[in-house]
Lab assay of single mutants.
Amino acid sequence: MLDDRARMEAAKKEKVEQILAEFQLQEEDLKKVMRRMQKEMDRGLRLETHEEASVKMLPTYVRSTPEGSEVGDFLSLDLGGTNFRVMLVKVGEGEEGQWSVKTKHQMYSIPEDAMTGTAEMLFDYISECISDFLDKHQMKHKKLPLGFTFSFPVRHEDIDKGILLNWTKGFKASGAEGNNVVGLLRDAIKRRGDFEMDVVAMVNDTVATMISCYYEDHQCEVGMIVGTGCNACYMEEMQNVELVEGDEGRMCVNTEWGAFGDSGELDEFLLEYDRLVDESSANPGQQLYEKLIGGKYMGELVRLVLLRLVDENLLFHGEASEQLRTRGAFETRFVSQVESDTGDRKQIYNILSTLGLRPSTTDCDIVRRACESVSTRAAHMCSAGLAGVINRMRESRSEDVMRITVGVDGSVYKLHPSFKERFHASVRRLTPSCEITFIESEEGSGRGAALVSAVACKKACMLGQ
């Protein structure tokens, strides 16, 4: 009897593995994704193909990295998701002549009506938060230079001027797309009239992360975010950046690689679950690469896999709870928690219980395998993109072996128990001629924006502006 049951459990697990095998990517698959990513990057950089390229390769006008001589107080704003952060950054000489960066910050959550109302409502709310922060720190009387981390696709015309191309991540505030974001912020500050600010720089969160990590390690020339969304930036040779005049030196390019796949480059790798996630998203047909990796989508992918296993009578005796059938019910943090389970399955059992399920031991094991399959594919897909960037940098610099540091931020990278190990191992397999160091950014977005502002202020002083 026991043997029969054991055989049935083994057969069930084997069927589960057959279904989950769809998520496995072979090294040849990853090399294919990497080569296609490089081709799209090239198209994004070139003037004649930029418009139709899915990977936009947006110039950021960040050319210099901090040298350690900029000092002063800077205000930093960070808008990239449902939370908005205001930070005071003091850049100065530390002990023994070292450079020191001290920060104080406060988080504000953005109400739904500000995210989806008008641009005026959104930026009025942001300036209200700045006003509140300055009151708390008794700094209303000071006109501070301000660095703005704005983590949406922007076409820069200068370091302090950028046109919002399109909202992502659930934002829909009308009247912002096609307009200068810094102008919208300046107008809102003017409307309030109770404080003055000098907006000197606007950067993407990947750029802010790279600059913040450069402060720790001067070989950091790539910034990457794996959180709600997924994106990367890197220092490109100016001669390859056709959208900006000049051939000397390097400029940081914001790849906006989340949109890779929007022209069909990933079609052969998309599964039924991916198509369902895409169809029910706020932007169907867009940001397809990001939807395979980002935390906004990972939990939902797992939920759809679990429903398939229920329908195949391989999980929960073929019956799903009402909660499990509800879109968004299986949160991405559950994926991390399930994979963090120590082996007694308590954590998995508790999560499934909150979803109205009474799982068996085998159910718990199957749910864990589903989570591992989805998150491992995410790590491997992400590795193909980064390997594409790094191999490109090595080739354009004609280096036999390139040493490089990548600064990384984002909740999936930082909080998932195995993502970074799987990701690092896969990147290294795909970049055999590179020695890569990964560092995690601390308060990256805010500190990085302030350091970019410090560079901009120093330049302005040198130019006598």
Rank of each mutant, 00 (worst) to 15 (best):
D4T: 14
R5S: 10
K13G: 12
K13L: 10
K13S: 14
L20Q: 07
L25T: 09
L25E: 05
Q26T: 07
D29V: 12
R35G: 08
E40Y: 02
D42C: 09
E52W: 09
K56F: 06
S64T: 15
E67L: 15
E70V: 14
G72T: 06
G80K: 05
G81N: 02
T82A: 02
T82E: 04
K90R: 14
V91F: 14
G92Y: 07
G92S: 11
M107W: 06
D113Q: 08
A119I: 01
M121I: 05
I130R: 01
S131Q: 02
D135L: 12
H141V: 07
P145C: 13
L146A: 06
L146S: 01
G147H: 01
G147V: 03
F152L: 01
R155L: 00
E157G: 03
I159N: 00
G170Y: 03
S174P: 00
S174W: 01
G175F: 04
G175Y: 00
E177M: 04
V181Q: 01
V181G: 00
L184T: 07
L184S: 02
R186M: 06
A188V: 08
E196H: 07
V203S: 01
V203K: 00
T209F: 00
C213A: 15
Y214Q: 15
D217R: 07
H218M: 14
G223I: 03
V226A: 07
G227V: 07
C230K: 09
A232N: 11
C233P: 03
E237W: 03
E237N: 06
Q239F: 15
Q239K: 08
E248H: 08
R250Y: 12
C252I: 15
N254I: 06
W257R: 08
G264C: 09
I293A: 04
K296S: 15
Y297F: 04
Y297E: 03
M298I: 06
L301W: 03
L304V: 10
V305Y: 09
L307V: 10
L314I: 13
S321K: 15
R327L: 10
G328Q: 15
G328P: 11
Q337H: 12
E339F: 02
K346G: 13
K346R: 13
I348G: 08
S353H: 05
L357R: 09
S360F: 11
T362R: 12
C364Y: 00
I366L: 12
C371M: 07
C371L: 02
E372C: 08
E395C: 06
S398W: 07
D400G: 11
T405F: 12
S411D: 04
K420I: 05
E421G: 12
E421T: 10
E421Q: 12
R422V: 10
V427M: 01
V427Y: 07
R428V: 10
E435G: 08
E442W: 14
E442G: 05
E442H: 15
E443G: 11
S445R: 02
G446Y: 03
G448K: 00
G448T: 05
A454C: 10
C457N: 11
C457G: 14
K458C: 12
A460Q: 15
A460D: 14
L463G: 12
L463W: 12
